[in-house]
Simulated assay, not measured.
Amino acid sequence: MLKLFSLPALGAALGGFVGLRSGHNPYYSGPVSDHYDGVKFFNPSGQNGKGFKDLVRWRLADGKEEWPDEFPSPFRDRPPQRVEGAGLRVALVGHASFLIQTAGLNMLTDPVWSERCSPVSFAGPKRVNPPGIAFGDLPPIDAVLLTHNHYDHLDIDTLRRLVAAHPLRIVTPLGNDAILREAGIAAPIFAHDWGDRVRVSDAVHVHVEPAQHWSARGVLDRQRALWAAFVLETPAGAIYHVGDTGFGDGAQFSAIRAKHGEPLLAILPIGAFEPRWFMRDQHMNPDDAVRAFVATGARQALGHHWGTFKLTDEGIERPPEALVRALAEHGVAPERFRPLRPGEVWEAAAGA
C-alpha cells in the first residue's frame, strides 16, 4: 500500500472522499463568504481538486519517472544576521522553504527541515538533498509565514524546533492556528482571511491573498482550513510569495498587479505538475508559472517547489527544463526567472 500511495497523497485524497460527508469543522467557525460555506473553504472558481477514484486512477497509471536517491545542490548558504533597510536577500532552503531578509527582519516561508514531508517519520516523500541552510546557521527568526497545511508546507517538527530556538510569530490563513495550537506550538499565531493585512513590523506588512489550492492533514478535514498566497509590503518593494496554486483563469495574478502594483519579486512554484489532468487545478507547471509572472508584472521571479521531495510523476529535472522552454515561448529573458536550488541566494540590486 505504501508503495502505491504516498501517505500524504492517500490521506489528502481520502479527505476528499470521506471528509466532505461530515458537517463539522474542527478548526474554524465563522461567517459564510465567497470562499467559505460555513463548514469548508473552497475555491470560487469551482476547481477544488480531485477525489479518491481519481487518485487511484493516477497511481495505477504508467508514466512515472524515477528520481535519484540523492540530488545534492552545489550551493550552501550561511546567511547574515540581518539585512537592513531596503536591502533584500532571499535564500532557498528547499522545496517551498525560503529565508527572506529585509528591513531588519528575518522571515521563513513554509519551513521544512525534516527528512520526510509526511504524517509519519518512517514513510512518505523523503528529501533528496539537505536543507540549503543548516538549522544551526539560521539567523534570529522573527516570523514564519505558512501558506497552508499540507505536510510539505506545514511541518510540526520543524516548527517546534524553531519556536524553541527563536521568539517568532506565525502568520497563516484561517483554521491553521487550531492545528498549530493542538500540536503545542507555543508562539503568537495570527490567522487571517484572504484580503487581510497583517503588521509584522513598522516597515513590513503581510497581505493574505487568494490562491487556487486546497487543504487536508488527515481523512476527515479536507478544506477545513484555508490556503493562501502572501504579498509582503517592504521598503525594498512588494514580494509576492505563492506556496501552491493552480493557474485557473489567471485572474488571481492580474489581481495582484491591480491591488499592489508590479511586485519587485514573485516567488512561484514550478514543480509537482504531472499528470496534468490530476494536478492542473492545484499545481502550476512552468508554462503556467511564466504566464503568472507576466500577469503580475513582477521584475524578477524565483522558481521553487521542485527537486527536493518527489510528490508527482515528472522527473527531477523536468521543471527547470520546461521553464527554459516556457520563457523562450513567452519572450522572457532567462535571468528574470531563476529556478533556484537549495542554498542558492538572490539579492535585489541596489536601487532596484
Score class of each variant (00 low, 15 high):
Thr158Cys: 06
Phe135Ile: 11
Arg127Ala: 01
Pro130Lys: 15
Pro167Gly: 13
Ala143Tyr: 15
Gly175Cys: 06
Val204Asn: 06
Pro119Glu: 10
Gly195Val: 05
Glu115Phe: 09
Gly175His: 11
Val204Lys: 06
Ile185Phe: 11
Leu154Thr: 08
Tyr151Met: 10
Arg169Cys: 14
Leu108Pro: 04
Phe122Ser: 14
Leu174Lys: 08
Pro140Thr: 09
Ile189His: 00
Val198Arg: 00
Phe135Arg: 04
Leu138Ala: 02
Ser201Arg: 06
Thr172Gly: 09
Pro131His: 10
His150Arg: 04
Pro188Ser: 10
Ile189Gln: 00
Thr172Tyr: 08
Glu182Val: 11
Asp193Phe: 02
Asp152Thr: 06
Pro139Ser: 12
Leu168Lys: 10
Asp193Met: 01
Arg116Asn: 04
Asn176Ser: 13
Pro131Gln: 07
Ala183Arg: 10
Thr109Ser: 15
Pro139Phe: 11
His148Leu: 13
Trp113Phe: 15
Asp177Asn: 02
Ile156Asp: 08
Leu162Asn: 00
Thr147His: 10
Ala178Glu: 09
Arg199Ile: 04
Gly124Asn: 11
Val144Lys: 07
Thr147Lys: 01
Arg116His: 01
Leu180Asp: 00
Gly132Thr: 02
Val128Phe: 02
Arg199Val: 14
Val198Trp: 00
Asp202Lys: 15
Ala183Asp: 11
Ala165Glu: 14
Val120Ile: 14
Pro111Gln: 08
Ala183His: 14
Lys126Ser: 04
Pro131Leu: 07
Ser121Phe: 11
Pro119Gln: 08
Pro173Phe: 06
Ile156Pro: 10
Trp113Asp: 02
Asp152Gly: 14
Val144His: 05
Gly195Lys: 13
Ala191Lys: 00
Ala183Phe: 08
Pro131Ala: 04
Pro130Arg: 15
Glu115Gly: 13
Glu182Asp: 15
Asp196Asn: 14
His153Thr: 14
Ser121Cys: 05
Val128Ser: 02
Leu162Pro: 02
Asn129Gln: 14
Gly124Lys: 05
Thr147Leu: 03
Leu174Ser: 09
Ile170Trp: 03
Arg127Trp: 07
Ile185Asn: 02
Arg199Ser: 13
Leu154Asn: 00
